[in-house]
Amino acid sequence: MNSRIPAGQPTYSRTSHDPQLSNPGNDLASVRARLAGGESPTARYGPFEETPLHLAAAAGAAEAVTAMLAYTREVDIPDGRGRTPLWWAVEHVQEQTVRVLLEAGANAWRPCVGAWTPGRLALTTDLAPLVAETPGAVPLTVAQRAEQTRADRLISVFSAEKIHTEGLGVTFTDVLGEDEVIRRLGADPAKCPVFQQDFEMDQRDLFDAGGNYAVGVTGAALGCIVSQPFSNALDDCELARRLAPATAYSLFFNPKGGTCGTLYRDGTEIRHEEVGSLTPSADAPPEHWLYRFWQQPCIPFPHGDANLLAYACAMGGITKATARDCWALSRGPRRIVRCR
């Protein structure tokens, strides 16, 4: 999706008046010279009042972080949203800068977003050993570990193959059986043959052949996936109404920017939200944290939107899925249904 940051690029903004120290990509000698010249590692810049220390931590510039810490005792200085440099390092999964900050006395268990701490996030990543024994550590419960494992398994399903998400509209529903979904959409299952799912096929050919208001229907382990890869042929509200009684979650990757999701139960809208573009707020649903909306997109998944698809899948009532379930979006649907 266009609004997400390309892999490998740091998630911060610089303006023309920022001092050079706010660019952690500069060489270490230059960083040291500017520090010696009086530039502050804790001066605030940008829309989130981040400091050069935050930016260097997020970029994984461990030597620059070490140099900056020689000029400040504010290892846990918060940005304008309350997030410390350690939080920035953890959300970008930067092991070396996490190490440096912890050795300098950074508090892994300082609340930064509501009750959420850098240590709590780190425990769900490969960084866990670095924070598990730090002062004030709060280990994950058995239930929390199991819940995160289930979420990560679902993310892995949608990481199995590349999925083109720009312009994609997809609804996950707990209605069991393709034939039942097709009937609820107002069509005859006997007139909706099964297609071979093919990664090389242009899915537009299938949908064009289906005519106006054509959607794809593919059975999943515990429900069905209704896909509209190139247009919003059938309004989400109308689709949810036809699928009722059911739980359904519709996700739309807007090519003009942003990804929106809507949860429906029995045809009634429960929640409409923008997902994945920002670190969750303190009052965000717990699933936003569970499905790693906090983890910055310059790392994370083999397919960059896999966590959003996994989240939508779970919210639609499909809590288990197999590797083949992503084929509905990577290789095309099994059935094409003309809804009107």
Rank of each mutant, 00 (worst) to 15 (best):
M1R: 11
P10H: 13
Y12A: 13
S13G: 05
R14N: 14
R14S: 14
D27G: 04
L28S: 12
A29L: 15
A29N: 15
A29T: 15
R32N: 08
R32H: 07
G37W: 02
T42W: 00
R44H: 02
G46K: 02
F48V: 02
A57S: 15
A58Q: 05
E63P: 03
V65G: 00
T66S: 07
T66W: 05
A67M: 01
M68P: 00
T72Q: 01
R73N: 01
G82Y: 08
L86Q: 01
W87E: 02
V90A: 03
T97G: 05
L101S: 02
V113N: 00
W116T: 09
G119V: 08
R120N: 07
R120W: 03
L121G: 15
A122R: 06
T125V: 01
A132K: 07
E133W: 03
G136N: 11
T141Q: 15
V142Y: 05
E147N: 05
E147R: 08
D152K: 04
R153N: 13
L154V: 04
I155M: 01
I163F: 04
I163D: 04
E166I: 10
E166T: 12
T173H: 14
E180N: 12
V181C: 12
R184P: 13
A187E: 12
P189D: 11
A190L: 12
Q196L: 12
R204N: 14
L206D: 00
A209F: 12
V215L: 13
G216L: 03
V217H: 00
V217R: 10
A221Y: 11
Q228P: 06
P229G: 05
D235V: 01
C237W: 14
L239V: 06
R241C: 00
A244P: 08
A246R: 06
A246F: 03
F253Y: 15
N254K: 05
K256R: 06
G257H: 08
G257I: 00
C260W: 14
G267E: 04
T268R: 15
I270W: 05
R271T: 11
E274N: 15
G276H: 13
S281A: 10
D283S: 11
E287L: 10
F293P: 11
Q295F: 05
P300K: 14
P300S: 11
Y311Q: 11
A312Q: 08
A314E: 00
K320Y: 03
W327L: 15
L329G: 07
L329P: 06
R331D: 09
R338G: 09
R340S: 08
